[in-house]
Design a protein around this nucleic acid. Structure first.
Length: 551
RNA sequence: GCCCCCGUAGCUCAGUGGAUAGAGCAUCCCCCUCCUAAGGGGAGGGUCACACGUUCGAUUCGUGUCGGGGGCACCA
């Protein structure tokens, strides 16, 4: 419909101003009295044509080819042209939705190309916390959104199983194996002090076997065997994270280990390739990358004087590997504290000069999450000792509410997670509000108890009251909402849309009855709410929130 | 000092180069003989942080100032 109108306007614009090249912008007006679509075309043309906008609008309308879909056009305000669709074309969306079912709103924009979404990527040093939860919710929704836009999506989790943090974990577990209390002075100064360290130590001493999604390790039980403690601790915590993620309904396709980049020689290869590129130099006994060649404000050390590499070198190797695996697009969903790596990784990839586009990969960085309960900030968790875990949240407020709240805000603004609100089983809570709309429809359809397939072929002409018109408009905006959310890499757009759709439905529900004697009107209304049910389901699915049949 | 994000109603947050800036909560009023009141309708509440600039038009774009948060190592 939108493309149809755009074409009509293009023809009209050409008639009036054959010389000019203009972008035609059609938008859905906020207020229903401004029609189904509106364009500012006349205002844009006003300057080059040196005419007043309303006069141009009049000419445009005169030059507009006739269309079966338009009921009327009008000029409003400074010179907007508002289009009002006839009711038949407004109602058509119901049939489109019922026909397409779960495919309604999906498109093929990605053309089946490979995209990787890397998210969570938490190092196995403790349970996932609420910040990881935000990354998990946003990352998984991004993956779902891209999939709905026709991309071939891989979900990837990258972690460091070797460096200093893991050494610290290992000696913390060792200390607990020896029965050293976390308060005791001989406990490692910067060691991990959460209760889970005890659990790992106990499991290690009893020679437990842990099976994580990507690894399996049996403990030796020997406290002199640091390698075994290390491997076991990593596997143990990876498994804990698997459980956290499972409770959050998230599944990864690929786990990548930083250590593998060294053992397979990819780090070495990358360093050599960078040296060959001519963008490196030696100074002060270190090897430097000239990231300033690619927009950084100063050059960065790659190889330290002690011979080891700085963290962004394996990062570049890792991203080279991603590129070589055929991902034309990569989206890294990370906490905002990773922001400083972006320039370096991109600079390194450019220096390699292997055809990687300039802005590759994409980054979606999320800001901090503050958890509130009873009007106060929550900082402590029994499980982890120092931060609120994802599992605590899921257990307290449920998976649906947690996912919704963490994905329903723009990633780049700080988020306050109000536990009391998320737990509230009332209209204060947007998750329940949306799910309730779906459940209400289910309930009506159940009481009707008819064959849903007949709804595909009913006469929709009775759908003419303002509530119905509003709902029809909202439903027809769903596909472009899905497209938009994917283009902006912004899952919260879907959350907002669903809230609006649920609101339209609730208003309608209160104003009119569906199961009425007038058979024609009844069937038309059932058709409409059935279509609404479908779109609520499709949208909730993008968020990974369940569409409940009953509440 | 430099870089990034944010600043919109009392609170939590949407939104947009255009038409009267929205939602929920909170406050006040109204609506179940009726498909789930976990709902609906209404009222009040705003200098869109501030200044300047670009524009026919700026809350939206640019620059600067102020405020909040985060990041700025041969840590990861």
């Amino acid at each position: 419909m939108k493309t149809h109108l755009t074409q009509l306007l293009a023809i009209a614009a050409k008639t009036i101003a054959p010389e000019l090249q203009v972008d035609i912008l059609l938008e859905r007006p906020k207020s229903a009295e401004h029609g189904d679509f509106a364009t500012n075309l006349a205002l844009v043309l006003a300057k080059p044509l040196k005419l007043n906008p309303r006069a141009i609008a009049t000419q445009l309308i005169a030059a507009l080819p006739s269309s079966d879909y338009i009921a009327k056009t009008e000029i409003a305000g400074a010179g907007f042209i508002n289009f009002f669709l006839n009711s038949q074309s407004q109602q058509k969306v119901v049939k489109d939705i019922l026909q397409a079912g779960q495919h309604y709103g999906r498109n093929q924009n990605g053309q089946g190309q490979k995209v990787q979404v890397e998210f969570v990527s938490a190092n196995p040093t403790g349970p996932l916390h609420v910040g990881h939860g935000r990354g998990a919710a946003v990352g998984d929704c991004l993956a779902r959104l891209l999939n709905a836009n026709g991309w071939d999506v891989t979900r990837e989790f990258y972690y460091n199983d070797a460096g200093a943090q893991i050494d610290n974990l290992t000696i913390s577990v060792l200390a607990r194996c020896k029965g050293i209390s976390t308060e005791h002075e001989s406990f490692p100064e910067n060691g991990y002090r959460g209760e889970y360290i005890n659990d790992i130590a106990a499991a290690f001493l009893t020679k437990h076997t842990v099976i994580a999604d990507d690894i399996e390790v049996t403990a030796s039980g020997d406290i002199n065997d640091l390698d075994s403690i290390r491997a076991f601790s990593v596997a143990y915590l990876r498994h804990e994270q698997d459980l956290d993620l499972k409770a959050f309904q998230i599944k990864f396709d690929v786990f990548s280990l930083e250590s593998a980049l060294y053992t397979t020689g990819k780090v070495k290869e990358t360093v050599q390739a960078l040296i060959n590129s001519g963008h490196t130099y030696e100074a002060n006994d270190a090897l430097w990358l000239k990231t300033t060649d690619f927009g950084d404000d100063k050059d960065r050390v790659m190889r330290k004087t002690d011979g080891s590499y700085t963290y962004f070198v394996p990062d570049i190797a890792y991203h080279t590997d991603k590129w070589n695996r055929g991902f034309v697009r990569v989206i890294n969903e990370q906490g905002a504290d990773h922001h400083s790596t972006i320039t370096r990784v991109r600079a390194g990839l450019q220096a390699l000069n292997i055809g990687i586009p300039k802005g590759w990969p994409d980054y979606v960085l999320h800001q901090m999450v503050t958890v509130m309960r009873g009007g106060e900030e929550v900082k402590l968790s029994k499980r982890a000792g120092s931060y609120v875990t994802l599992r605590d949240l899921i257990e307290e407020v449920g998976c649906d509410a947690t996912r919704y709240f963490l994905a329903a805000r723009r990633a780049d603004s700080q988020l306050v997670f109000d536990i009391d609100l998320a737990r509230a089983q009332t209209n204060d809570n947007p998750v329940f509000y949306i799910q309730y709309a779906h459940a209400r429809i289910c309930s009506v359809l159940a009481q009707w108890n008819g064959d849903k397939s007949v709804l595909l072929n009913v006469d929709l002409s009775p759908l003419e009251n303002p509530h119905e018109t509003a709902l029809l408009q909202r439903l027809s905006a769903y596909p472009e909402t899905v497209e938009n959310a994917a283009n902006e890499l912004a899952p919260h757009v879907i959350a907002n849309y669903l809230k609006d759709l649920a609101s339209d439905l609730h208003s309608y529900y209160n104003e009119y009855k569906f199961l009425i004697d007038d058979e024609t009107v009844k069937m038309a209304r059932l058709s409409l709410i059935c279509a609404t049910q479908q779109v609520l389901r499709n949208g909730l699915d993008l968020l990974g929130v369940t569409a409940k049949e009953r509440m």
